[in-house]
Structure formats: C-alpha cells, structure tokens
C-alpha cells in the first residue's frame, strides 16, 4: 500500500510538472481542502464528487472534506464560493447548465458571473436524451412532432429549466403543442413514462436500464452531438430544432486564487479523474467516460456555453 501510494504521488507530481513546470510542485493546502458540492446528498453529482474526493485524498495525501451545498443546481454554492477569500481552501463542484440558465435568466440578481472563478477541470459530461416508451407510435423527433399535431397536444415529462426551453423552442419551430409535465428528477420522468401517464420525457442516465431491457427507446439526443450509446438517434439540431444543452460536471475556485494552488489542485483533480474508481462511478452515473477538459478547456467550455445559452434561452 505505501509503495502504491508513493507511486501515485509520484505520478501526480509528474502530472503537475507537465502542466506547469515552474509552479505548484510544492504547493499543498494549508489545512483541509474543502470540496463543496452544489447538490444534495445521494445524487449523481454528489456520488461522483465523493468518489473523486476520496481518490484525490488517496493520491495526494491531503485531507479533503466534502460538503453538500444544495440550492438552484449549484447557484447557491457558487454564490457562496464567490464571496469567500481566494485562499485555495475551498473549491466547488457543480453542473454547467443550471448555472448558465440562471446567469442568462436572472444574472442581475446573482452576485457572480463566469469571471468570478478560476476553473480547475471537469469530471464528465452528462448525456441528455429524449426517450419514449417502446409502445410510442413514433421513433424520432419529427415523428413525435407529427404525432403531437395529430393528437392536437401531447404530454412530455421534463425535469429542469433547460428542457422547458428546449421544448418551447421545439414548439416555436414546429407549431406542435406539448404539455410539459414537470417531474422531480430523472427517476420520476421514468416513472411517468413506465406508468403510461406520458409517452416521452428527458433522462440523463436514468433511462439506461430501460433501454437495455427494451422498455424504452431513444427519440433524440438533446446534446450537441449524438449519444454514445444510441448513435442512430438524431439530435434536436439534426431534426430541425436549433437547441441543445451540454451539461458538464466541473470544478472551480474563487477568482484570484494563488496560481500555484490552482495548478496543484487541477493536477490532483486530473490524476484522480484518470483513476479506475472515478471511471467506474462515471460509467455508472452517466454511462460515459471521465472527461477532464483542463483549466483552460473548462474556462472556454463555460464561456462558449454561456454564449450559446444566451442565444437559445433568451426570449
């Protein structure tokens, strides 16, 4: 065990050396490093965050404390982070889309913008799919739109604001009418589809066992590109509706954090994201593979994403 952890520490140090040769090599948190998770205990962000923290702790030997700060899909947590001193003691983990939606819709009420943070890296990308019961009389978005027009309206289960906006965009583009049934998370969407109360709804991973068992089928990918597990299903964009969301699990710290600290923490995150334990939990939670865009990549992803969200979601 000690040899293994030494090797890992060595690997982590090598990582740091690669990312920023001059800085960071000696930085370590003064006291415990706090990772705040913008969601409550028991969800996929929480679970991934805890496994990531556990892995970082094992690899670096730092003491890492994980806290849940739920509220508005991470907005409450990032509000808190943006008010803290930039001392490299507290970092936040959240999902990109909910933060962007609130910034677009009520940015004037928020005490932060994207420039308030130093970005540390990402853990994974969530794939968002529009799925339907296997008995639904349509197989793609065009078919669903035609069906809704035929029936004059059709209920669709959604679970978060971006999906409301995507469906509104669909209605605007196609003139079909959908009744949006707001569910409490992906699991409830699945329940509504399985129970026959709605024909279609959005899932960010909860649908996978049902796709495997054949109880459901993928109608469209709500991401920018097609889904890894259903390459035949077209995206909304390909189906003529110009809308997509790309939720990414990312980590950030307060702007102005010591660059050495940013580099060291980013390197620790990068090493942990590559571990088998994180790969396993990402696989279980999103059906995808771990993905770290690095500090600059994460920053770019957030700014580009916000520009896109402004176009899509500003009404």
């Amino acid at each position: 065990m000690p040899i293994k952890s030494k090797l890992l520490a060595l690997a982590a140090t090598a990582m740091i050396a690669m990312i920023s040769p001059s800085l960071a090599a000696d930085w370590k948190p003064d006291g415990p490093l706090k990772i705040q998770i913008g969601f409550g205990a028991g969800g996929s962000t929480d679970t991934m965050g805890r496994v990531l923290a556990n892995e970082m702790e094992k690899q670096t030997g730092w003491t890492i404390v994980v806290e849940n700060k739920p509220g508005a899909g991470g907005v409450a947590m990032f509000t808190g982070i943006s008010q803290m001193p930039a001392n490299g003691k507290t970092i936040g983990m959240g999902v990109s889309i909910p933060v962007m939606v609130q910034l677009v819709q009520r940015g004037d009420q928020l005490p932060f913008d994207l420039d308030s943070f130093d970005y540390l890296g990402t853990v994974a990308k969530a794939e968002l799919a529009l799925v339907a019961s296997k008995d639904a009389p349509f197989d793609d978005l065009e078919g669903m739109v035609a069906y809704a027009k035929e029936k004059s309206t059709m209920p669709v289960a959604i679970m978060a604001p971006p999906q409301i906006l995507m469906m509104k965009q669909t209605m605007k583009t196609t003139d079909a009418k959908f009744d949006l049934v707001t569910a409490d998370g992906g699991a409830e969407v699945m329940k509504l589809i399985l129970g026959g109360q709605v024909l279609a709804g959005f899932g960010s991973g909860e649908q996978l066992p049902y796709l495997e068992s054949g109880d459901m089928k993928v109608i469209a990918s709500a991401n920018q590109s097609r889904l890894s597990y259903a390459p035949d299903a077209k995206t909304f964009i390909e189906s003529g509706v110009n809308a997509y969301v790309e939720p990414v699990f990312f980590l950030a710290a307060r702007k102005g954090t010591d660059p050495a600290a940013v580099a060291a923490i980013a390197a620790a995150i990068d090493a942990a994201v590559q571990s088998p334990a994180v790969a396993k939990i990402v696989k279980n939670a999103t059906n995808g593979s771990p993905l770290n865009m690095g500090t600059d990549g994460t920053r770019k992803m957030m700014f580009d994403g916000l520009d896109n969200a402004k176009i899509l979601f500003a009404q």
Partner: peptide, 19 residues
C-alpha cells in the same frame, strides 16, 4: 432511499428492471 441508490452506484449496481 436516494442514499442507498448512491451506495449502489458506487458499488456498480444499477437498480432497475434488470437488477
């Protein structure tokens, strides 16, 4: 129950029709 699901996920179990 949500906490139990999270424990399942950590240990590679996927609750659902095929469990």
């Amino acid at each position: 129950a949500a906490l139990i699901v999270s424990a399942f996920m950590i240990h590679g179990m996927q609750p659902g029709p095929l469990l």
